[in-house]
């Protein structure tokens, strides 16, 4: 069980949206984690430093919240390590060929009403739900 957090989730979603708008206004770029991350992997994109800074900021934020406040950021992962490794590989291959993930397609792409992003988001939301159903209710593995 995880607690339903409508207000924190709304506020967090608004910040994610604000960062997407600001990145478009300043750099003229889509705030998609797949694209930003891929560009700092070899072969390096020539325009990598701002992307590295974005990623560093994204990693630093939760650490700062935990350090500066009494609140903990909820985290629980119960996926066995071999599944976690396999899942990571599958996500990496999938977002590369699918040209994006939840941030790039699901937020920025849908906001632009891009037909490719609408299709991609529909497909990955459905396959995620199907996978969770199979793992939890058909196989019952974890």
């Amino acid at each position: 069980m995880t607690q339903f957090t409508p207000f924190l989730s709304l506020a967090g979603g608004m910040l994610i949206g604000l960062s997407a708008v600001l990145l478009m206004a300043s750099h003229g770029r889509i705030a998609g984690m797949t694209g930003i991350l891929s560009a700092i992997l070899p072969p390096l994109s020539s325009d990598w430093p701002w992307r590295a800074a974005f990623l560093a900021g994204a990693v630093a934020a939760p650490a700062l919240i935990v350090a500066l406040s009494a609140d903990n950021i909820g985290f629980a992962s119960s996926t066995p390590t071999p599944w976690l490794i396999a899942g990571g590989l599958i996500v990496g291959v999938g977002v590369y060929f699918g040209s994006g993930c939840t941030s790039g397609h699901g937020v920025c792409g849908l906001a632009r009403r891009s037909p490719r992003s609408i299709v991609a988001t529909g497909v990955f939301m459905a396959s995620t739900a199907a996978t969770v159903f199979v793992i939890r209710h058909v196989l019952g593995v974890f």
Binding site: A61, I90, V119, V123, S127, T128
Partner: peptide, 30 residues
Amino acid sequence: PLVAGAMLFGVGWGITGFCPGGAIPALGLA
């Protein structure tokens, strides 16, 4: 590639609960 890639991404997201945008900040939780 778009459709198959998105489908694969969903399988991995469903196995792990991590998407790229969620996992990178989660690194900061050590």
